[in-house]
Design a protein around this nucleic acid. Sequence first.
DNA 1: TTAATGTCTCTAGCAACTATAGCTTCAAGG
DNA 2: CCTTGAAGCTATAGTTGCTAGAGACATTAA
Lengths: 146, 146
Amino acid sequence: MLTIGKLGAQAGVKVPTIRYYEQIGILPEAERSAGNQRLYSRKALERLAFIRHARDLGFTLEAIRDLLSLSDNPDQSCAAADAIAKAQLAEVESRLARLTALKAELERMVVQCAGGRIADCRVIEVLGDHSLCTTDHRHPESEASA
Amino acid sequence: MLTIGKLGAQAGVKVPTIRYYEQIGILPEAERSAGNQRLYSRKALERLAFIRHARDLGFTLEAIRDLLSLSDNPDQSCAAADAIAKAQLAEVESRLARLTALKAELERMVVQCAGGRIADCRVIEVLGDHSLCTTDHRHPESEASA
DNA sequence: TTAATGTCTCTAGCAACTATAGCTTCAAGG
DNA sequence: CCTTGAAGCTATAGTTGCTAGAGACATTAA
């Protein structure tokens, strides 16, 4: 049995985060020692590692909750897990595309900074004028006039 | 003079977001009509477009606050603006590298989903075992035992 | 035994908004 | 002129995923 600190060290998760996960119900309530301290089994460590890893991959806690409930009933089809992973992949691909465009624009900005006065600085200028963008990186939820 | 709704439509920013920006002081307090409604000039539209664009590029509101205060005193050196943009570029590059690794791992997960039962699902399995990762995408702030 | 460290609960804070409630103002049609 | 509906106002609370603090109790090593 591990105390919360050891568990956190082994899983790479901070102690308050573990308590938070318990609070929001993605970790079950831990057993307690005589002195009321949380004690964790190897199974708990695995579950926490799963969560940590999924968080690293950018899954939301909601998606992780779904994945965990899937893995808690291992006899059903894995279509749902597949769908969650595919959605996550699509998310990541879209973020990648956006970031790639941003990187190009930022590089242009930095290169063009002549080291002069602010009044001539391309960084400020480019940011002030959206029409100087070559690429279109619009948020999906903003449908205002272009 | 534009009402807040027109301003938002033109800049591609939602109305409550504009009021929020005023509240936290990155937009100045707007003039008011006789009936207490906010009125905006063309200058305000430019400032809001600047903010919107910088947000699109991933700058935090704090960074934007700095950039705005720079552009409000256009006679100094643009070194500070350059530094902010460079920091942002580094951020973006690091996020890009992480996301690229994540994408590869998610693709592997999805490809390997055999469509069978959860018990055999690679999505769940891969998430449960960090050692199956080929790539190391560790958050900079997590320095726990590996 | 004592000091240091770890853990406990609880509350509040962070970014960057978004949503709701209950009101007032404005513009257009009849 | 009046009404109706959209758009505006303020204020407060909620969101996500933690993180930080206060003040008290537990455990461990010297």
